Amino acid sequence: MKIAQFALLVFAIVLAIASTVEAGKKKKKPSKKPTQVVRWNKKMSGVSTWFNGHDLKGAACYGNLMGNSHVNAGDSWHIGAVHMASYVKSYKGACFECAKVSVGKKSIIVRIIDDCASCKPNQIDLTSSAFKALAPLSKGVIKTTYQFIRCPSSSLKWPKSPAIRKN
């Protein structure tokens, strides 16, 4: 009987030591540091989705950078939203920049003024009017290419404030 108890005790000790050693090993967690930067005129592949209604209220770039959280986007505006936390410098990394979003031969220029916390990297959430210029709303999600470009100063459909940056 004592040999069985001794064997059980040794087994328990070995198991405890193995568990402690395994728990002590640090597993590498995936980096949550922002990795995206605005790369001028570099075509990138991604997807586009669309938003409207309540989601147009309180455009993030205005609230976080300019203290005007009351700025509500209009659905007729050709604007986009990206996951700001994915960008180096967060909001300052992508806010108020312009992107040319394309599907085949169709393209539209949008100005990034909102955050899309649920978006993945390389996803641009477009107002429904901008999305309709590329595909029917019923598609929901479309494969796109996009590139950040200098914002044209012509009267495109987006807010005039702040002034277009001369990058």
Rank of each mutant, 00 (worst) to 15 (best):
A73R: 04
S76Y: 15
N72Y: 10
S76C: 00
V21A: 14
N64S: 13
K92N: 15
L8W: 01
V110A: 05
A130E: 10
A135Q: 10
A12N: 04
K43R: 15
V10Y: 00
C151Q: 11
G93L: 05
D114E: 05
S48D: 07
M66F: 15
R111Q: 11
I164H: 04
I13A: 14
L8D: 01
I109L: 07
D125P: 01
S155F: 04
S129E: 11
T144W: 03
F11H: 00
L126H: 10
S154Y: 03
K25T: 08
N68P: 00
K43T: 08
G46W: 09
Q123K: 01
P136M: 03
I124V: 14
E97T: 15
G140Q: 07
C98M: 07
M84Y: 06
I164R: 14
K57F: 05
K2I: 13
I112M: 14
K100T: 07
A85P: 05
N72A: 13
K43P: 13
A60F: 10
A73K: 01
N41P: 03
A85F: 01
Q36L: 15
P136L: 07
N52H: 12
K2F: 12
A4R: 15
F6N: 12
L15V: 15
S31W: 05
A85W: 00
S154P: 00
S76W: 13
M1L: 11
E22M: 07
A73I: 11
L9Q: 08
K32C: 05
N41L: 08
A81G: 10
M84P: 00
A133H: 13
N72Q: 06
L9E: 03
H83T: 03
S69C: 11
